[in-house]
Design a protein around this nucleic acid. Structure first.
Lengths: 211, 211
DNA sequence: GTCTATAAGCAGATAGAC
DNA sequence: GTCTATCTGCTTATAGAC
């Protein structure tokens, strides 16, 4: 049994039974959560029998933990790279927005999965899911503070800037159905609206911080 | 059986068995979702027997629907009032931010509950949960467009402005545990950080939109 | 490794006494 | 209205043949 799963955020590479089980579990756990996803359903989607789930992964819990660990562990190094690059600040923020919105457009349920996991099972998260390496935003923070000191940026706490940018990128995709209803958009229109977000967020953020 | 539940967002007024059941269900469904919350658990928290749940509310589904309807229905008129008031735009936005952050500070799991409900059970939502009256943001949109036309505001699609403000208010509270980890804050520090959000959001938004 | 069959436990729902 | 006891079905998990 292979403990080193490194699936794509959009899963599915090799074709071994173990991998097919993992991919099916990935899709269903992300979509429905631990309680909502059923072992039978996972087996069906993987095209194998229920018993094999227990053969490869001892229990539902273990399978879930592997999926959660993969989902969360995979995003960390990318974010880290973005935050620690040597790019000028505005470029860095711009690339950060592009990356986040691309990511969440393709995987709209991943942020919700992570947030639910952290809110509903914090103990499991800290004991078994939490990756050893976390994004360290200190370099980014210092860069912001330096630009503020130089007068290139309006005064802002770098922590709030980071949280603002992430909020503007992720929340609209997580709350997509709610936004669709409140704005009174049909499926096509909400798609078009979300496609405008990259430019809308950049314009909003840069206008907020530029002197 | 009373079909007109109107509980506080923070539940718990009268002391009838029916109300105690509803309050217990409210707390547990919001916290754990439909699958995560168990009828036994609800009965225990209400201090009564499992059988009584079915006496007052025919099934788990029905009970859940009542809770979901109450949670969602309650927020609508308040938001509507905020959006349709006659206040000048900046004041309106300021009050909107105050309201949202106050609300989500006191009830951090409500937005997550609503988002999960909409994403995971859209059919049930549209058939039985969706309130007849929805917030109608058109007045707000026209007001923004008028200010932009007068040159008092930088050009911005009012829909994006609304989504931006809501994102900045809600997301940090929904993602609180994640933010805590990434920023490396302890319980006290994250509390202090979130307490700064009202001013931080206002400053950010107004700097972004003022000419 | 993969299957069928089945065990074991739990959760939602009902019957019926008080 | 409220309880205890019980039923029914579903879900996880295991045993054992191939």
């Amino acid at each position: 049994m292979d403990n080193q799963h490194q699936p794509e955020i959009t899963p599915g590479n090799t074709d071994s039974t173990e991998q097919r089980i993992f991919d099916a579990a990935h899709e269903l756990f992300v979509l429905k959560g631990l309680d909502g996803a059923k072992m039978q359903e996972i087996a069906d989607k993987a095209g194998i029998n229920k018993a094999l789930l227990h053969y490869y992964y001892r229990s539902k819990e273990k399978l879930y933990e592997m999926v959660a660990k993969a989902v969360i562990g995979r995003a960390v190094p990318v974010i880290q790279n973005l935050l620690e690059s040597d790019d000028p600040l505005e470029e860095k923020i711009s690339r950060f927005i592009d990356f986040y919105i691309d990511m969440v457009s393709r995987n709209p349920f991943i942020p919700l999965f992570v947030i639910n996991e952290l809110n509903k099972h914090p103990d499991r998260f800290f004991e078994t899911i939490l990756p050893k390496e976390l994004p360290r935003p200190h370099a980014f923070f210092r860069q912001v503070e330096a630009e503020v000191a130089k007068g290139n940026l309006r005064p802002i706490k770098p922590q709030h800037l980071l949280v603002n940018v992430v909020s503007l990128c992720i929340f609209p995709f997580v709350a997509k159905p709610m936004i669709r209803i409140v704005l009174g958009l049909d499926q096509q229109e909400i798609k078009a609206f979300l496609a405008e977000r990259k430019e809308a967020v950049k314009a909003f953020v840069f206008q907020a911080i530029r002197t």
